[in-house]
Design a protein around this nucleic acid. Structure first.
Lengths: 165, 165
DNA sequence: GGTATGCTACTCGGATACGGTATGTCCGAGTACGCATGG
DNA sequence: CCATGCGTACTCGGACATACCGTATCCGAGTAGCATACC
């Protein structure tokens, strides 16, 4: 049971977009080049982010992707949900209603304790992800990187960004 | 990203085994029939539980599976880890060391903040699962079921169990 | 000289192949029980 | 009647197919900017 690689790529891409000025964007080619990943495949996940309203896509010359809202309003759970979906990892197939000692559906008002426990664990996972925003990530990256490195990144972004309202 | 169905089956199977007397076991055929799942496939997961030391398997006539330790010493995380593996869901591919603004490996002493956040969330998930034991599940099931239902299950188990030391 | 129109270049979006892992099945290995046979 | 040896039935274990989802790619849709021609 593993998350799609797209989740990692999307998170890094969103984090990079957080460094953009208000009216600037980054094309998928540029984002792919920055992370050295296949552009066409990254595009699929950027599309998912777009549908989820996390980023806005602009077509045409000087188009590209940019954040749709403030970094502090985008959590890692938002990104995970957009890219990987919101289906629970644990699927309860109600096998207690199967077999020679099957429970009747009417006896299953309460959730199966096993399913309940797994879903509670997932809730803890989601809550943890939801508590971290891209703004937090940006702060961490800024604090743990050297000034020289940050300048290099900002210069590269400046040189490769697209500009259109 | 979804858990194997085997996790659910294994959890229910272990819960059922918790109802066995000390020297009794249940064959995979019987476990499969009780939950109405394919016996051969369930066997695959029981094998995993056996390798993980959660259940012990006995071959030959009157053989079968039984718990290797007390239900209170078996958590849902133990079962999940045995069946689904312990690989983290989130795979950090260190893409920050790739591309035109790559970080040097020497600059990556600290974990990537994004990876760290995802791994922390997984830790919360595992902790939640580890806090629930089969004994807890057994109590929940007992309390939420009618006496008649419990008697029916116990009678069925009695009739289908295997006995060998 | 200004304006309108068409063309071109650039970007995203969805439909389309491929591979790996979860799913499902089968046959062989190992063990105890029971029966037969001989003492 | 008892002990011993062999056969059989039962159970688990790992190797073998199949289906679905994550991975990867390509071509079409849409937009803006520029050049050109006309007023």
């Amino acid at each position: 049971m593993q998350l799609s690689k797209g989740v990692e790529w999307a998170a890094h891409s969103v984090a990079l977009m957080a460094a953009l000025p208000q009216d600037a964007g980054l094309s998928r080619e540029v984002l792919a080049e920055y992370h050295e990943v296949p552009a066409a495949y990254l595009a699929k996940h950027l599309q998912a982010l777009s549908k989820a309203g996390i980023v806005t896509a602009t077509r045409g010359a000087q188009g590209g992707y940019r954040l749709a809202r403030a970094p502090s309003e985008i959590s890692l759970w938002d990104i995970t949900a957009a890219v990987d979906g919101v289906l629970p990892m644990f699927r309860c197939t109600e096998i207690r209603q199967k077999g020679p000692c099957a429970l009747l559906a009417s006896e299953c008002k309460l959730a199966c304790p096993i399913a309940a426990a797994f879903l509670a664990a997932e809730a803890a996972w989601r809550k943890s992800l939801a508590s971290i925003t891209i703004a937090d990530i940006a702060v961490s990256i800024t604090q743990s990187s050297s000034q020289a490195k940050l300048r290099r990144v900002m210069a590269w972004v400046q040189a490769n960004q697209t500009r259109r309202d």
